[in-house]
């Protein structure tokens, strides 16, 4: 047994717990709308949306000429979500489908924290769908793009039937604190940390 392993058998530090205040409003359960039949929704998205995008990408059709709008850029998504409704503009009435790979590793938690709020505050009707683990790799393959933020926004009248099918399987997003605030109890949590067991040795000459 090495000296390092021997050292690990004897405690140098002890575990301590620090109380921290969590955000009373952002518990994971209510932020992301619950998907009732995740497998079926994912299959629908793959067959109707992603397979079509793959075909268009293979045919080397330029993105602006695609019959449906697709973007993975965060800034574009934010612009589209925050765009005010204009009744004269036909394109603004089409449904928005926002797919989020929130369970995949490599998607920033800071970005993910903003998405449900952005979708909820949007003046347009947005269907927010959380995708299963591993969806990011599939999207990257089908779209042939890096899609680093793990977001995909699709819009267009052709998606109406897909959106209707998905909406039937997804709960409505509930962020009650943005409409009428109801007092939430204190979300207190304990953070595991460590502290040294031995007191630090005082330097010679110090009193």
């Amino acid at each position: 047994m090495s000296l390092k392993n021997l050292d690990k058998q004897y405690a140098q530090r002890r575990q301590t717990y620090r109380a921290v205040l969590d955000n009373p409003f952002t518990n994971e359960g209510s932020l992301w709308p619950h998907v009732k039949d995740q497998q079926q929704v994912w299959e629908l998205i793959q067959t109707i949306l992603l397979a079509r995008c793959r075909a268009l990408a293979d045919a080397e059709v330029p993105a602006p000429e695609w019959p449906l709008g697709i973007t993975t850029s965060f800034n574009e998504i934010v612009t589209l979500l925050q765009h005010e409704n204009d009744d004269n503009d036909q394109s603004n009435r089409s449904p928005l489908l926002l797919l989020v790979c929130n369970k995949d590793h490599g998607v920033s938690s800071v970005v993910l924290q903003q998405i449900p709020l952005l979708a909820y505050m949007s003046p347009r009707k947005v269907t927010l769908v959380q995708l299963p683990r591993g969806a990011l790799a599939t999207i990257q393959t089908q779209l042939k793009s890096d899609c680093t933020e793990g977001l995909l926004l699709a819009w267009g009248d052709e998606l109406q039937s897909l959106v209707n099918q998905i909406t039937a399987k997804i709960d409505q997003p509930q962020l009650p604190w943005l409409d009428q605030v109801k007092f939430e109890p204190t979300a207190l949590k304990l953070l595991k940390t460590t502290a040294p067991l031995k007191k630090p040795v005082e330097k010679a000459g110090k009193k």
């Binding site: 050292d7 690990k8 058998q9 004897y10 405690a11 140098q12 530090r13 002890r14 575990q15 301590t16 717990y17 109380a19 207190l188 304990l190 460590t194 067991l197």
Partner: peptide, 15 residues
């Protein structure tokens, strides 16, 4: 229990 040189203690019941 000691794990990796850290003495594990149960979390407190109250804060």
């Amino acid at each position: 229990r000691v794990e990796n040189g850290v003495l594990l203690t149960p979390p407190p019941r109250n804060v």
